[in-house]
């Protein structure tokens, strides 16, 4: 084997450069937790910045990158969670979820939702987060924008079975919270929903007008028919 070339020394120069560089250049440095989307001033400056004090992380929704997704949550609009819940228990997500980790029980009677329309609601809505694989399929298939991804990740619990089965009331989060954790995504979603709603209303109006027009036409036609009848008489 040949040792006499310069390859080994070249390699050693690289490691030396990295050794020195790790003290001076931030680019080289591996931070155990990437905060690249944060402004410079918020980057962890010293050891001890991470992990945060116990418990702090739970409430600090900005600990993770706001693009990331973890487990689903149910959305409700401003107001009492159960009064403004968007989910109508249509059970599409339950059917589509690849690992089958959503369990829904539909309510027997209807209740008014945020728009004041009577709707069914989930009497039970459990997600087994020990099975959930954070794939976001449920979010995509939901026709009512009722379920979105949360980014909370501190979910460890001493109770292996019950503790990881998240119930409806724990899943329910307000739209404001959603805006806080996924600002860009939430804004687009709201925009689209508003557009959908407007389109629907416009359609409804158009339909109503059309119906009215049709009724008028019908009436006119009937009158004309009557007249012609009279004429023939």
């Amino acid at each position: 084997m040949s040792i006499l070339g310069g390859g080994i020394f070249k390699g050693m120069a690289v490691t030396l450069r990295n050794f020195v560089g790790s003290y001076f250049s931030k680019e080289r440095f591996i931070t155990t937790n990437e905060y690249s989307w944060r402004p410079e001033s918020e980057l962890p400056q010293s050891i001890g910045d991470y992990p945060k004090e116990e418990g702090e992380q739970l409430s600090d929704t900005t600990t993770v990158n706001h693009y990331s997704r973890n487990f689903p949550m149910l959305l409700h609009d401003t107001g009492e969670p159960m009064d403004t819940i968007r989910c109508v228990a249509c059970q599409i997500c339950e059917r589509e979820c690849p690992p089958q980790c959503i369990y829904i029980e539909k309510s027997t009677e209807k209740k008014e939702n945020a728009d004041g329309k009577p709707q069914f609601y989930p009497a039970k809505f459990d997600i087994d987060v020990s099975v959930c694989m954070s794939c976001q399929i449920c979010v995509e298939v939901c026709p009512f924008d009722a379920i979105v991804m949360n980014s909370q990740f501190e979910l460890s619990t001493p109770d292996r079975f019950g503790g990881l089965l998240v119930r409806r009331d724990d899943l329910l989060k307000s739209n404001d919270y959603y805006h806080k954790i996924h600002p860009q995504e939430a804004a687009t979603r709201d925009e689209r929903m508003a557009a959908d709603k407007a389109a629907k209303e416009a359609k409804k109006k158009a339909a109503a007008e059309k119906a009215k027009a049709a009724a008028e036409a019908k009436a006119a036609a009937a009158e004309a028919a009557n007249e012609s009848k009279e004429d023939t008489e």
Partner: peptide, 23 residues
């Protein structure tokens, strides 16, 4: 420590004086 720095890591930095956060 040196290997960590060669690999652009921090290396041991937590354990200093017990019961404090002095590294």
């Amino acid at each position: 420590k040196a290997l960590a720095r060669i690999q652009n890591r921090i290396g041991p930095n937590k354990i200093g004086i017990p019961c404090t956060r002095i590294g």
